[in-house]
Design a binder for these strands. Sequence first.
DNA 1: GCCGTTTGTAAGACGTTCCC
DNA 2: GGGAACGTCTTACAAACGGC
Length: 358
Amino acid sequence: MSMNQQNRHVLVANKVLIAMSGLTRWTKREEGFMYEQHHYNIPGPFLALKWTKSRIRHLLTLLSHCDDKGMLSLVESETLADHARTSVRSLHDNLRLFEEAGLIRYDFHFTGVLSIELVDYLSNYRDLTEESGSFASKTGYTSIWCGMIHHLMEIDHVNILRVALRALVQVERDIHVQSQEKAILTYDEVKGFLPRYCGHRLAVKGMLDQLSRLFDVQLVEDTKDFLSAVKDNISLKRRIHTVTRPLMFQMKIGEKVDSRRIREAERASTLIGWFDLREVARDFVDFDLLEVPQSSLKSLSDTYGFEACDEVLRSIRNDFLRYGERLQETDVYSLFFQSPVLYLNERLRRLSEKLAIA
DNA sequence: GCCGTTTGTAAGACGTTCCC
DNA sequence: GGGAACGTCTTACAAACGGC
């Protein structure tokens, strides 16, 4: 029924993750004050809402199912509620709330089936603004692997979920953007955005421990280690004001849920699959005339995954091996020779639909 | 949609422990 | 010894959700 597949890589603006995790009360920094709502330029609607467990889950669910325009067409509310592990009732409550806040617009086509539009998707949810033709992001966005999203939905304690969102942003900035070995969250930072009643050292430590399923978490308690880590890390030095406790958590993301690594590995394999096909096909046709840009192959790989791409590319290769140049005259392959990218997309779409039903 | 019950979340009070 | 950090308990109230 649903027109929307679940996205394999879920793209979320850092400012949205920060807003959902809760803004820090700890605003004083070495060179003055830092208010996250200004620093991240967080749109009003995100601040007006209180981000409870179910709301965080529901928004992540919408982002997991929307297309690159921020649309969800003809989705079943039960599918969305199941994905978020909540009742349909709560989903509907929150959708109404999101709409009142101006975050989304939605319409029921008939009972249980609706379409949703994320308002100002690019600027609100991806932090992308167009400047003279190209898109730029001010405070970045994070790519989350769908397996990681599933783990997030399993987290029972809202405050652990909040820490997880922060950890994702930190991994994106420290490891992926700044190429640091590890991402660092200090105890004071965690304490700052969590509600007061669970900001104690042991409680914070306990939460990070529970995240070790998703992240490779290392605790730094020794004052000497703490100070030397701060000395080596410029961005961290800027973040710290006064240290109440020399306590920090160094994190890496598990490889199996690292969206970037997965994407890069899959892209590379898909390209290799394409070149394998080319090797075979160019004995029979002028293959390079087809002009398939690598960027299209990469985006097909991102959308459908390597396994599906591999299956389709292999079957085309086998057909070439079997039928050779006669393939050009067949009806089923006419689209392939006219517009190979469209053809691949069509076959991949059908394949993944078949997999979804099975 | 509204209502009532159950469960979850937040915050303050207050006593204890830690550490200079 | 004294202040900051911490832990537990209590309370208030909001969210979640089923029934209608």
